[in-house]
Design a binder for these strands. Structure first.
Length: 877
RNA sequence: GCGGACGUGGCGGAAUGGUAUACGCAGCAGACUUAAAAUCUGCGGCCCACAAGGCAUGAGGGUUCGAUUCCCUCCGUCCGCACCA
């Protein structure tokens, strides 16, 4: 067999078929072995898989196959995040029904995934657009509604007047809709919200328990939740200056210590007091209208100037009835954070300082940094937000910031006005409730009915699912559900009178917030989950996906699991015990003279290093080799997984994805390295063949003694085994692959030794058999097809996919004598070989006889000799 | 602006307080071949003709017997958040 080339194209489908026929990756829920749940983020069925999928699913498959070999009952399912806008875009642009488009894509991508040789349990496949899935989602919506986890409220949205649809912030570009180009308006719509903010503190606290999540993701979630501790303070207003004799304004501040530096108050343009004042002041009304015209798009907010308008209202300082502050409406105050009103202390807040400098209100520093003279400490253009002592602050003078905050809070909490304390400590979060209403067709219908008499009525559970109608038209903008002739019309479940269905559908993030739970038992029809299954399988032991989901998907899933817990559909709070975020697949770009890009397949590369040149295959025209970018359609730097699998085989593609780059970092796809991976596939095939030849003469019984060469091989094999196991556990795939290559090199050396000697000694033949039986299982998780073929060639009748992980022989990892590096003043100068358990004194004596040491010491005694057991010796001269 | 990560040969990278440059890619030289491909062997941080030696992990400083690893300052690259009071 050793002189035949390994033919991946013939071999891979053969093993895939066999795995399939024998159903060896179908997982049973009642298997008594310990469980291991490995999950990769399921794909959106966009049409074809891309290299990012190949990388993601290869990593998951390595873990799944390894854990299976380690004796775990492994759950490794796959499904489709199948609702979403691209299906509707296809319907509009190509007149294909979203359902047809989606299911065709699923079929194509499933075939592609199968060609990768992934050890997936396809019997548990889920598509979120299937009524058998979203039925349960609707059921949970109703349960959550009953449990008070969902509410309906007004919210501002980006409205595209041409497409007649709501746009996400990222779909608004320079204030215009990304598709229509129409100027986006702010509209108030009544929408459904999941009350995720009720769980802000719990979601924050529990991050500490997620010790197998990347620190980066945990930090991003902490920042996103954005907890702050502050004080609500009720300022009195001069009723003579207010529109309707209002007497009070409540503000939120995290810096109550700076109250004596206050120079103004500011209201959000959406604040009720601003609205009231605008009714009596046309100029103010115009100012507010102008503020509201600006969208929520980030670019606009960034560039917008800080603008204010003096309402004429005057507020009274809480510590001085004779001290009044002007009340402005300002465009930078958000209505939905705190109370929508603030007091401004310009000396210690840059934004407030910019504001007073524009309107000439001045500033007073109240915190003086250590070592500064308060008399000369002035603020002009840069606010001071550091530590220091209170100054110019009456009873607070001399206190630290923390003490001053506490003193202000205590004093104002103690005062009451109208039976309520003047101030109250409050914790605020940046995290907002999760608006899930989408004015779209291709999503999960929200199961409620609007009745003129009964109001919002939930669809009775027995009437679920509320299915999407299939006879819809995309010939006009807007939501097809809204204008469907009959779907919307329904009798009120309570009073029986004609009523209307909710035509909004759910955000697709809802679909992906519980699919991992459904995978634990996707067959049960009368409930979203089977409690014994969901509780025994969850949490997911290893979740793998892109960093782009670090916040939204992962935070929503954490919330949703809590909600399922409350509603009785799951018994835990944290769905993902281990998380890994893999890097992207990137590729260099090729720019043609006309500025457009060429694909890697259209380009031929010549030369190396600085001499590398790229020319178009078709015309010979030179193209510029550009920067390395994320593979994308727009840069045309994509490589099609199908092409790679066709040319090199899935194992080569899988090996490449794990090589060289650490898995959390981006990997650069290059033709040279794919060939390198392919060469290694061939080399392993040859090596296993050669090893098999050598091993033919091996005795059945393990020899009592091993010669030096055989022992060296055995040590290499067991050393590699121990290290590879550890590296897979830590997901250090690139290091793991280097270990396998090193072991293969050691095996090649041994084969070389045998062929130089003419024949194998019995001990070497036995050791070679052992080495081959270790090598194949080691690379099986990465290259399963090649491993099956090698395993069969070695004469095994079992499948490697079902074989146990080899046992390490610990004694082989311990050396009798060890060679320690010898440093002189921290630089390596020599080696010394000593018995493993040699005493310090003996090692020291041995070291002092070395020529290099004698020379360095020039006859003098060393100042110190440091012996680190099993590691190193350092002589200080 | 706030927060975080990273910086090692020509390139991807290894080593998380103990032999810096494992493993691979590219390169060079050689073997096999009529030739090529494939394969195999050898060489690859810099300075110095060699050796000895010295210098090298973005730059500078510190801690340590010993620092790529820990600490401080700076430079560069990337990422997240951002009128959040």
């Amino acid at each position: 067999m050793s002189n035949e080339r390994y033919n991946a194209r013939e071999t891979e489908p053969r093993w895939q078929k066999l795995w399939d026929e024998r159903g060896i990756f179908a997982t049973k829920n009642d298997d008594p072995r310990p469980k291991y749940y490995v999950l990769e983020m399921f794909p959106y069925p966009s049409g074809r898989i891309h290299m990012g999928h190949v990388r993601n699913y290869t990593m998951g498959d390595v873990v799944a196959r390894y854990k299976r070999a380690m004796g775990f009952n492994v759950l490794h399912p796959m499904g489709w995040d199948a609702f979403g806008m691209p299906a509707e875009n296809a319907a509009i642009e190509r007149k294909v029904h979203p359902k047809t488009w989606t299911y065709e894509n699923i079929a194509t991508m499933k075939k592609q995934l199968k060609s990768m040789g992934l050890s997936l349990d396809w019997a548990r496949e889920i598509a979120t657009c299937d009524p058998s899935y979203y039925k349960h989602q609707q059921r949970m919506f109703l349960d959550f509604l009953k449990a008070g986890l969902i509410e309906r409220k007004q919210s501002k949205v980006n409205w595209d007047p041409v497409d007649q649809t709501v746009l996400a912030n990222e779909q608004v570009i320079d204030g215009r809709g990304w598709r229509s180009g129409a100027e986006v308006e702010q509209r108030e719509l009544t929408q459904w919200f999941f009350r995720i903010s009720d769980y802000a503190q719990d979601l924050l606290d529990s991050i500490d328990t997620l010790d197998r999540w990347p620190d980066k993701v945990r930090l991003m979630q902490r920042n996103w939740i954005g907890r702050s501790e502050g004080l609500l303070v009720r300022f009195m207003l001069d009723p003579k200056t207010t529109p309707n004799s209002e007497s009070e304004l409540e503000i939120y501040t995290t810096r109550p210590d700076t109250l004596f530096g206050a120079k103004f108050m500011a209201l959000s343009p959406d604040h009720p007091l601003a609205a009231a004042a605008a009714k009596k002041n046309q100029k103010l009304a115009a100012f507010i209208a102008e503020c509201k015209k600006h969208g929520t798009a980030q670019e606009i907010i960034d560039k917008a100037e800080k603008l204010g308008f003096d309402t004429g209202i005057r507020a009274v300082h809480p510590f001085d009835p004779n001290w009044t502050l002007p009340v402005y409406v300002a465009n930078f105050i958000l209505m939905d954070y705190g109370t929508g009103a603030i007091f401004g202390c310009p000396a210690h807040d840059q934004r407030d300082l910019d504001f007073v400098n524009k309107y000439g209100l001045g500033n007073v520093p109240v915190v003086c940094p250590e070592g500064q003279d308060p008399k000369t400490f002035v603020i002009t253009d840069t606010a001071y937000d550091g530590d220091g002592r209170m100054v110019n602050s009456r009873f607070l003078d001399g206190m630290t910031i923390a003490d001053a905050k506490d003193a202000v809070a205590k004093r104002l909490e103690g005062e009451t006005r109208g039976n309520r304390p003047v101030a109250q400590r409050q914790v605020n979060f940046r995290l907002r409730d999760w608006g899930i209403s989408r004015q779209r067709y291709w999503g999960c219908p929200i199961p409620v009915i609007h009745c003129d008499d009964c109001g919002v009525v939930p669809v009775p559970v027995k009437n679920l699912p509320v299915t999407l109608p299939e006879d819809i038209e995309f010939d006009r903008p807007g939501n097809p559900l809204d204008r469907h002739p009959t779907w919307k019309n329904v009798a009120c479940p309570q009073c029986g009178k004609p009523a209307r269905r909710e035509t909004d559908t759910m955000d697709t993030f809802v679909d992906s917030s519980w699919y991992f739970a459904r995978f634990t038992n996707p067959w049960i029809e009368n409930a979203p989950t089977e409690r014994k299954d969901v509780d025994s399988w969850l949490p997911v032991d290893q979740y793998i996906g892109g960093i782009e989901h670090a916040i939204l998907h992962l935070l929503y899933s954490r919330f949703f699991t809590r909600a399922m817990n409350v509603a009785g559909h799951a018994g835990l709070k944290e769905p993902f015990a281990g998380l890994f975020t893999q890097g992207m697949v990137v590729h260099e770009t090729y720019r043609k003279t006309d500025g457009t890009f060429a694909t890697p397949a259209e380009v031929k590369i010549d030369g190396a290093g600085d001499q590398r040149r790229a020319t178009l295959l078709a015309t010979g025209e030179e193209v510029e080799i550009g920067s390395i970018e994320k593979m994308s359609k727009s840069k045309r730097n994509t490589v099609d997984p199908d092409d790679i699998i066709e040319t090199y085989g899935a194992d080569t593609a899988r090996w490449f994805m794990l090589s060289d780059s650490p898995p959390e970092r981006d990997v650069i796809w290059t033709e040279e390295r794919v060939q390198g991976a392919s060469r290694f596939v061939q080399r392993l095939w040859r090596l296993v063949g050669e090893a098999h030849e050598v091993a033919k003469s091996a005795p059945k019984e393990r020899p009592a003694e091993f010669g030096a060469a055989a022992l060296k091989l055995r040590k290499a094999a067991h050393g590699a085994l121990a290290r590879v196991s550890g590296d897979i556990e830590k997901l250090h795939f690139n290091v793991c692959l280097a270990q396998i290559r090193e072991f293969a090199n050691a095996m090649s050396d041994a084969v070389e030794t045998v062929s130089a000697a003419g024949q194998a000694t019995p001990d070497m033949a036995w050791a070679m058999r052992e080495a081959a039986d270790i090598l194949v299982p080691l690379f099986h998780p990465m290259m399963p097809h090649l491993a099956e073929e090698c395993w069969a060639a070695l004469g095994h009748k079992t499948l490697i996919a079902q074989a146990p992980w080899p046992q390490v022989e610990g004694a082989l990892l311990v050396e009798d004598t060890i060679t320690l590096p010898v440093q002189i003043n921290g630089k390596k100068r020599a080696d010394v070989t000593v018995p493993r358990d040699a005493a310090h004194a003996d090692i020291e004596a041995a070291v002092l006889t070395l020529d290099a040491v004698k020379k360095a010491l020039e006859g003098k005694a060393p100042k110190k000799v440091i012996v680190v057991p099993q590691r190193i010796v350092n002589v200080v001269a």
